[in-house]
């Protein structure tokens, strides 16, 4: 498995605050990758480092084997849709396309114009008067028409209403199907990712809590509920992610590659939502254990 995005001991510090600390991860080839985590986990910092808008305090990051912002060719290989999908509000849609054509050697103007037509955007309309959803779509067209090898999207739908969000993700799915471009997409909303991603990375406090194929992850996690019992009584091949107990009953979320054989359990599948929240909670508990009284998650 080759990595499209790889970091090793990556750190980014602002003043005395670590936005990203000792982050080591690898995003595999050929997937639509979702990067999920709570606010402040370092998702945006990581993606801004990946496109060269930030420089690391220490550690390394490579995208498609190249160092970010290492000259125009590396910039041309990455299509970036930034958080809040910024555009020049005084410039029309058509002028944004002209900007793309002037600033990118591999610009596909036929593709850009076709997508703008499909979206029903008026080329003469100023970007400042577009709705949030339309602006996000414009930003996606700009990132796509430069013919990148990888699309990186930083919380592209965070500020959109549910309908616009669904439409944007729909467009993204079409793009992936049509152009086969690699995609890395961050969000703090699992539902968004579930729709488009086939690979998931859960980032909590700069560290990868969980990564893997969405289908594999769903197939290897279960909810077990039954009479109350202690976690130490579970078989060693069942790693407990989360547990809750009442007087009589216990519920565990476990990870295992083997079938559940104990007939005392009622076995239920997990949703992606359960899974991600379970890992985030686990990370938080580990963190509060290490530093009593200091919660990392808000």
């Amino acid at each position: 498995m080759t990595a499209v995005l790889e970091t090793d001991g990556l750190c980014k510090q602002y003043g005395r605050k670590w936005a990203l600390h000792d982050c080591t991860l690898a995003i595999p080839e050929g997937k639509v990758v979702g990067l999920v985590g709570p606010n402040g986990a370092g998702k945006s910092t990581l993606l801004n480092l990946a496109v060269g808008l930030l420089t690391p305090t220490s550690g390394t990051i490579t995208v498609l084997g190249g160092r970010p912002s290492d000259g125009p060719s590396q910039l041309g290989r990455i299509g970036f849709v930034a958080q809040d999908t910024p555009t020049y509000e005084g410039m029309s849609v058509a002028k944004h396309l002209r900007m793309g054509a002037w600033l990118n050697p591999h610009w596909d103007s036929e593709l850009a114009e076709r997508r703008i037509r499909q979206l029903g955007l008026d080329p003469r309309q100023k970007a400042g008067s577009l709705s949030g959803g339309q602006r996000a779509q414009l930003a996606l067209v700009l990132a796509l028409a430069k013919k990148p090898e990888i699309l990186i999207l930083d919380e592209p739908v965070a500020s959109l209403d549910p309908l616009a969000r669904r439409e944007f993700l729909q467009t993204l799915m079409e793009v992936v199907a049509e152009h086969g471009v690699r995609v890395v997409l961050s969000s703090h909303l699992i539902a968004d990712l579930e729709r488009v991603c086939d690979y998931l990375i859960v980032l909590v406090a700069s560290h990868v809590q969980l990564s893997g194929d969405v289908s594999d992850l769903l197939a290897s996690h279960y909810y077990l509920s039954g009479p109350r019992r202690d976690r130490s009584s579970l078989p060693v091949n069942q790693a407990v992610i989360e547990e809750s107990h009442t007087d009589k009953q216990s519920v565990f979320m476990v990870r295992t590659d083997d079938p559940i054989l104990d007939p005392a359990w009622i076995v239920k599948p997990v949703t992606l939502d359960d899974l991600v929240l379970g890992y985030m909670r686990q990370a938080r508990e580990a963190e509060t254990h290490r530093r009593p009284g200091l919660g990392v998650l808000r």
């Binding site: 808008l53 000259g71 793309g100």
Partner: peptide
């Protein structure tokens, strides 16, 4: 926020 747009085109 447009620096994130313009600085990620293929121009250093």
């Amino acid at each position: 926020g447009t620096f994130r747009l313009v600085w990620t085109q293929s121009v250093t």
